[in-house]
Simulated scan of single mutants.
Amino acid sequence: MGLFNRPESRRPGFKLAFLACLAAIIVLGMGVFTRLADAGLGCPDWPGCYGHALWPSEDHEVERANAAYPHMPVEHDKTWPEMVHRYLAASLGLFTIAILAMAWRNRGPGLPLKLPAFILGFIILQGMFGMWTVTLKLWPQVVTAHLLGGFTTLSMLWLLTLRLNNQRATLPTIEISRLQALRPLALVGLLIVIGQIALGGWTTSNYADIACPDFPTCQGEWLPSMNFADGFNIFQHIGPNYLGGTLDNDARVAIHYSHRVGAIVTALYLLFLFVKLRGLNATAAKPLSVALLLVLIVQIGLGISNVVFSFPISVAVAHNLVGALLLLVMVTINYFLYTASVSRGGEQT
């Protein structure tokens, strides 16, 4: 069984949902680049940029913008990433409006309508978090929530694509019972991946990426000095400005170290899940298990490369995008496990 169904068997809106997934990946990548390039406050106002629909480029525009925001002068290498990200995010909203309109027009039994409506509502909420990211000046709680919202949006769009793909595995009764036993394990794996992504978001939003500049030790020690109370204080006050971070070194080390430990836990659990998937006598399980293993290996390699090569933006962006791909693999595995049905005549796909 391939990943995608025959074109004639797909439901209306499949292509649009798939394109929206691609758009969401671009938006997520651009958002990560904006964050890692310290361009999150490249435009100190919202929704414009120093009062412009794009950004100030002419000398007189820059002069006027600097006068209006004397504490945040124009930096050309930071204005354009922020505004490009905003417009790409807006285009994703248009995609979801079109998807919802098509779902409403083709509504009927078995055709998802609630999910497209929920996705649109969630993207509107994401827009609000984008605004709060600027107005609350990179408050870590909002930045992390905004990042998780981007991953969530992509995951829901991918789930919608899978549903519109209209393809489910069919297995003999004896295999279905083994598959059902694997469902809670796969769900736990999904939650672990989400938790690790949240840890990664908290790490970047608190500028704890470089808190451990060496590998496999951290600051030359296996167990460095850490301040977990401050590092994971989610009730810290708002503002005035979190650009560059406000935590002390021990707090940042605690965050970074936790992300590394989380990576080990995630890797071990997903390897366990890989073995369980390989044990299923189902054609669809084997490519999913291979995809899980390959993406996991690449993600581990990128995580180590981040430290070894002193966190280049290209590697850091790739690490985030492959993390998104790992999340989509887990969503696909769970979809496969929870939608598989008993085959007729002993055949399976």
Score class of each variant (00 low, 15 high):
S258Y: 03
G239T: 08
A254Y: 04
W222H: 02
D230F: 00
H256Q: 14
T246Y: 03
V253M: 12
H237E: 10
I238A: 10
G231R: 00
V261H: 11
A267E: 00
S258G: 03
G244I: 08
S258K: 02
I255A: 11
N233I: 11
N233H: 11
F228W: 07
R260Q: 05
V261M: 15
H256C: 02
Q236C: 04
R252D: 00
D248K: 14
Q219P: 00
P240D: 12
L223K: 12
L268C: 10
D248W: 04
Q219K: 15
F232W: 15
N249E: 15
P224A: 10
F232H: 05
G262K: 05
L223Y: 05
S258E: 02
H256V: 01
L243K: 13
G244P: 04
P240T: 11
P224W: 09
G239C: 03
F235I: 08
T266Q: 11
P224D: 08
T217L: 14
R260V: 04
L243E: 14
A251R: 10
V253T: 14
V265Q: 01
F232C: 08
A267M: 08
T217V: 01
D230S: 12
A267F: 13
G245S: 07
I255K: 05
A267S: 13
C218L: 03
P224Q: 09
V265D: 01
Y257G: 02
F235H: 09
G239K: 14
F228E: 02
D250L: 12
D230T: 12
N249W: 01
H237Q: 10
L268A: 15
R252F: 06
L247M: 11
A251H: 07
T217A: 11
T217Y: 03
M226P: 00
T266R: 06
A263S: 14
R260P: 02
I234Q: 05
G220C: 04
V253W: 09
I255S: 06
P240C: 03
V265S: 11
I238W: 13
P240Q: 09
A254H: 05
L268P: 02
H256P: 00
T266G: 11
L243R: 09
H259A: 14
S225L: 09
G245D: 03
G244S: 09
N233L: 07
F228K: 04
A267C: 06
D250M: 09
F235V: 07
G262W: 04
G239M: 06
E221G: 00
A229G: 00
N233M: 10
F235E: 10
C218I: 06
G239S: 12
C218S: 03
A254I: 07
V261S: 05
H259P: 09
D250E: 15
A229T: 12
N227K: 08
R260E: 05
A229C: 00
A267V: 10
G239P: 04
L268H: 00
R260S: 01
A254K: 07
G244M: 14
G245M: 06
V253K: 09
G244Y: 08
M226A: 11
A254E: 08
Q236Y: 04
S258N: 06
T217S: 14
Y257C: 01
N227Y: 01
D248L: 09
P224E: 01
R252C: 01
A251G: 13
G220F: 02
H237W: 07
Y242S: 03
N249G: 01
L247Q: 10
V265M: 13
Q236F: 04
F228G: 02
S225K: 09
F235S: 12
I234G: 07
P224R: 03
H237G: 13
P240N: 08
I234Y: 14
L243S: 14
G239D: 08
V253F: 05
